[in-house]
């Protein structure tokens, strides 16, 4: 139990800070609402209008989602390696570098061919 005490303390501190900030902000800050503030927050871009008749939104979201999924899930292989990279030694490091290199090749393709441009 003793080993996990710092984690609990850190969690408590984090929660305390979050609650304190939110309450303080709502008590002390000025409240001037405008249209932009009342809209749903979508990563800082223009919110999409409610889809009519069952959900159509720009194709760009699909592209971004697809790229995200692929690069996100590739990273799953890094976890087991990261947990025991010392036990795996140089071999593990070299293999992982090769793996990351191939992921970067895909990344370079996406970047050069404009897959990361929003407009």
């Amino acid at each position: 139990m003793n080993a996990y005490a710092p984690i609990l303390v850190l969690g408590g501190l984090g929660a305390g800070f979050a609650i304190f900030s939110v309450i303080t902000a709502s008590l002390t800050g000025p409240k001037r609402y405008n249209r932009a503030k009342l809209e749903a927050y979508e990563c800082g871009i223009e919110p999409t209008p409610q889809p009519a008749g069952g959900g159509r939104f720009p194709i760009k979201y699909y592209l971004t989602a697809m790229l995200f999924i692929v690069f996100d899930i590739e990273i799953v292989f890094l976890y087991p390696w990261a947990v025991s990279f010392d036990a795996l030694g140089l071999f593990g490091l070299v293999e992982m570098l090769l793996f990351v290199l191939t992921v970067f090749v895909a990344y370079a393709y996406v970047w050069r061919r404009g897959g990361l441009e929003w407009d």
Binding site: N2, A3, A5, P6, D86, A87, L88, G89, F91, G92
Partner: peptide, 27 residues
């Protein structure tokens, strides 16, 4: 052992792994 030392040892136990714990590299 103090709490910080425990956390520290969690993070650095890697360096202290004896050679016997090494995973044999695949051939």
């Amino acid at each position: 052992m103090s709490a910080t030392a425990v956390v520290h040892s969690l993070l650095t136990s890697a360096a202290a792994t004896p050679a016997a714990d090494r995973i044999p590299t695949p051939h």
